[in-house]
Design a protein around this nucleic acid. Structure first.
Length: 884
RNA sequence: GCGAAGGUGGCGGAAUUGGUAGACGCACUGGAUUUAGGUUCCAGCGCCGCAAGGCUUGGGGGUUCGAGUCCCCCCCUUCGCACCA
């Protein structure tokens, strides 16, 4: 054995061993049908952006730790990996380098796969897939057609960002401050036809089934519930006449009790009424145009200054019969509900601000526990529930009473009714982009939109095109565009829109279960592996990806493809972001230059407090801008490749797990990595250095067994107690996925081993050997899921493998309850809740005996000072609190 | 703007869920080894105080024998908002 820890050699040997023995191949029928429960462990597959980033390393290390831990616990584990290979960055790279997205993508996959292998993940690579391959995306198209047949896919217009210079649709990401990223032109909103998936048909189940997801974080479920947004309210019609025709302006509100306080209505710029009024009003037309400028991003829209303009049109209040003016408001979104709202400035903060700005009437109609109302400034309680006032026949009614009465009256007049609405909107999947799944539709002048028949799938995406930023290259490629109508055989045009990449990632976990299947989307093997027992990925996917996947699973279930599978992911872990410090200098003219933390030296004073940070290259100071997610723009990224090359995969994995618990953000620290590496070197030195001392102990213990070795002497008892306490903590922490404290348990074990001499006197050397052999065997197994290479090597070299088999299938060590027992228990002494001392009590001491001992204790006597004892609280095994 | 999560030493974090706050690691200080730097080893290390002791989990209030943990108010940071993935 090498006395020096050489991670590169150790890791190469272990990885070759695993590869040779197909150690991570997963099969549905375990050999011998041993009845092991299956465990499907899945990490969100990566987008092949070029090389792994630290977020990937963290994500996949967490997944790998779970995979290896559950295998030791006796599960039949499957951990697959693939590539979310369609998407915008490939097109951007193509524009920048003139390389087709396909080549760029496949090259990236090859490189990143090599990186993943070097980290030693227990992945079954025989299940690898890439969503950009026709064998995969043909099933996107197939399911799209099934959904179309059932009315779960339909066509309607949607709003997109339009770059008027490049004549192309832009993603939100490509719109910067309302302008196109390449042209700088002010972006416009444009209505185009698109395909939608009817996720709203599943809204009720998507919401209700959240209760069954007991293995999901509460916060994710809350966010999904809010996103689906079920609300009970009332749809109200405000009648009006237009060109002699009787019509209604329909609005939805959850506060029908405030209807009598409605003093205006506001519609979105895209609303038909706005368009109508703009025809005869130039100023209004200009305002409507202004509202249509800028991006479609809702976060931006919500932060715009509230602006509006009257249309000159009036509608009738459905109860009072009053005439109410209709305004166009930039804060009203066409995508929500009816694209119109009733304005109740008295009890809605946004309406209040709008009314103040344009001098509209404010009419308070709700009295909240007699609290004062003034129309000068908004007060938070104006929006609270209360009793109706100023509301005619509804005066005195509470919220529910008023809503019931008003809804009933509206219904009688045919001007509205109670209604349940959802915030959730149908999923628009059309993208005016090249690098995605072609939508399998043919447009025929005679037959209209014709679905491509199943036997002509897949509609194959040409892989040699290079986009130039001006529209979709598919539309300029006759060999793709021109085809025959499947219906009448006449010349026709293919749909050139492709599918949203969220489609690809909505079912890849099902496909992983069915490698090599080319006759159907999935097969019976999916039944064995589904649902995914543990899913791991970034918190940023908490809503969209996870909601779409849940929807897609339910659709496939209802199509009979996966009977009985209601939800795709049983347990979910959302890992935190990887952060690093940001350093910068102002370079004049308001410019800022960012410096990578690796190039900055931080100096500390004698108390460890930071005093300065200077750039290594010129020694001049740099400013700190706190910490933030690793990004190119802030130049604070760390390349995992450098880390692996310098320290090895085990150190990288260990640091990632140790630095913070999986769900929290992780702060990068070079010295933290150093610390992780130091621990592994110490472990290696203890187990493989020191002249083969540890190996001797293990060898002795296999030949000579001492009967009562666990109780041979107090030093051994204390040592075993430390080891088994750490084991207990580690097992508990593996179960609750808190891996940072697993690492600290391993460090405690090594500290105990290094400090253990076996005691003096007539100690049997053999008993000591057995204690060390037991402790090392525990430590190797506990550390293995996190640092599998080094533990694999030591387990084998010290002779454990010969006795117990390969470490990856070694059984999880059990805590020996007898090792944890103590004869005397230390109790904390408190007087009036303040810590005043400690005392020892016999293990078997009862409450009264403990109380007696405590009251007589010097520390208690000193602080009670003869005052009358009011109460004594005894918490067995923990503390005594004397109250005076 | 709306929705969600989080604030504990100089730093990352721990505290098995109402019972010794600061485990484990980093940084820092002193010492040993080394020609030196690095490595390694030993010891110290929340803050104030000579000490006795006091203070301390973003800030303020409350419940309790006892609060980082439970309740109310306030402040700050991060994430998502439907075409980035």
């Amino acid at each position: 054995m090498q006395p020096q820890y050489d991670p590169e050699a150790v890791e190469r040997e272990a990885q070759e061993h695993w590869e040779r023995s197909f150690a991570f191949r997963a099969t549905e029928e375990p050999p011998g049908g041993d009845g092991r429960p299956k465990f499907y462990c899945l990490s969100m597959f990566p987008y092949p952006s070029g090389k792994l980033h630290m977020g990937h390393v963290r994500n996949y290390t967490i997944g790998d730790v779970m995979t290896r831990f559950h295998r030791m616990r006796g599960h039949n584990v499957m951990q697959p990996m693939g590539w979310d290979a369609f998407g915008l960055p490939a097109e951007n790279a193509a524009m920048a380098n003139g390389v087709p997205p396909a080549k760029w993508t496949y090259d990236n996959i090859a490189y990143m796969k090599k990186q993943l292998r070097s980290l030693g993940f227990a992945i079954d690579w025989e299940r690898e897939l890439a969503t950009c391959s026709p064998e995969y995306y043909r099933w996107n198209q197939w399911l799209f057609l099934r959904m179309l047949e059932r009315g779960l896919v339909y066509k309607k217009t949607g709003t997109v960002n339009w770059d008027p210079v490049d004549q192309t649709v832009l993603a939100n990401e490509q719109v910067i401050d309302g302008r196109g990223w390449r042209t700088g032109a002010v972006v416009e909103k444009r209505e185009i036809p698109m395909y939608y998936m009817r996720i709203t048909a599943y809204a009720e189940e998507l919401l209700a089934a959240l209760d069954t997801l007991t293995g999901w974080p509460e916060r994710v479920k809350t966010m999904q519930a809010n996103w689906i947004g079920k609300s009970h309210g009332v749809t109200i019609g405000f009648p009006y006449e237009l060109g002699g025709e009787k019509k209604q302006l329909r609005v939805f509100t959850t506060r029908a009790d405030t209807l009598m306080g409605a003093t205006f209505c506001a519609v979105a710029a895209e609303h038909p009424l706005a368009a109508h009024a703009a025809k005869s009003d130039r100023k209004l037309a200009a305002f409507v145009e202004e509202c249509k400028r800028g991006s479609v991003m809702e976060a931006e829209l919500a932060q715009l200054d509230k602006k509006g303009m009257p249309t000159g049109l009036f509608v009738t209040h459905p109860i009072s019969g009053e005439k109410i003016e209709v305004w166009v408001g930039n804060y009203v979104l066409m995508a929500y509900g009816e694209g119109a709202v009733m304005g109740v400035p008295g009890h809605d903060e946004r309406d209040f601000a709008f009314a103040m700005k344009y001098g509209l009437r404010i009419r308070p109609v709700i009295d909240v526990e007699g609290r004062p109302y003034s129309t000068d400034a908004w007060q938070p309680w104006y929006a609270d529930y209360g009793k109706c006032v100023n509301s005619g026949k509804y005066d005195g009614l509470d919220y529910q009473g008023a809503v019931d009465a008003i809804a009933a009256d509206l219904k009688k007049k045919n001007l509205g009714d109670k209604q349940v609405t959802w915030r959730l909107r149908d999923w628009g999947i059309s993208r005016q982009r090249y690098w995605g799944t072609p939508i399998p539709i043919v447009h025929c002048d005679a037959c209209g939109d014709v679905p491509v028949p199943d036997d002509r799938l897949p509609v194959v995406l040409p892989e040699n095109l290079v986009p130039d930023g001006t529209g979709n290259p598919l539309a300029k490629t006759p060999s793709f565009l021109n085809c025959q109508c499947p219906n009448c055989g006449k010349p026709a045009k293919r749909e050139t829109d492709t599918m949203d990449t969220f489609v690809d990632s909505s079912w890849y976990y099902l496909r992983f279960a069915c490698p090599g299947q080319n006759q159907s989307m999935i097969d019976g093997r999916a039944k064995y592996w589904m649902a995914v027992d543990q899913y791991i990925g970034g918190i940023e996917h908490a809503i969209l990806h996870l909601l779409y996947s849940r929807f897609w699973t339910k659709v496939m279930r209802d199509l009979g493809l996966i009977p009985g599978v209601d939800e795709p992911f049983t347990r979910l872990l959302t890992q935190g972001m990887v952060l690093n410090e940001i350093f910068y200098r102002k370079t004049g003219e308001g410019r800022v230059a960012y410096y990578n933390p690796a190039d900055v030296e931080v100096k500390h004073d004698e108390k460890g407090q930071r005093v300065s940070a200077v750039l290594k290259s010129d020694g001049r100071p740099v400013e700190s801008d706190g910490i933030g997610t690793m990004s190119k723009s802030k130049n604070n990224g760390v390349d995992p490749q450098d880390l692996i090359e310098k320290y090895g995969a085990d150190t990288a994995r260990l640091f990632m797990m140790f630095a913070s618990p999986p769900e929290q953000t992780l702060e990068w620290s070079d010295s933290g990595v150093e610390g992780g590496s130091r621990f592994l070197r110490r472990l290696w030195f203890y187990a493989a250095g020191r002249g083969g001392d540890a190996a001797n102990h293990v060898a002795i213990s296999t030949f000579v067994r001492v009967k009562d070795w666990t109780t041979e002497n107090p030093a051994i008892r204390e040592f075993r107690r430390e080891i088994h306490l750490a084991l207990k903590q580690a097992s508990y922490d593996y179960e609750r996925t808190q891996y940072n404290t697993v690492v600290s348990a391993c460090m405690k074990m090594l500290n105990s081993l290094e400090g253990f001499s076996g005691g003096t006197g007539k100690t049997s050397i053999n008993a000591v050997s057995q204690a060390i052999t037991e402790a090392l065997g525990i430590l190797f197994r506990v550390l293995y899921p996190i640092a599998p290479h080094i533990t694999h090597a030591l387990w084998k070299d010290l002779g454990y493998a010969a006795k117990h088999g390969d470490l990856l299938d070694a059984p999880w060590p059990e805590v020996d309850a007898a090792a944890l027992e103590q004869d005397e228990i230390e109790l904390v002494l408190q007087v009036n809740g303040k810590l005043r001392g400690h005392m020892k009590a016999p293990k078997a001491a009862g409450r009264e005996q403990i109380e007696r001992l405590a009251l007589a204790h010097e520390a208690v006597v000193r602080f009670t000072g003869g005052q009358a004892v009011k109460k004594v609280v005894v918490v067995p095994g923990r503390l005594v609190n004397v109250v005076v």
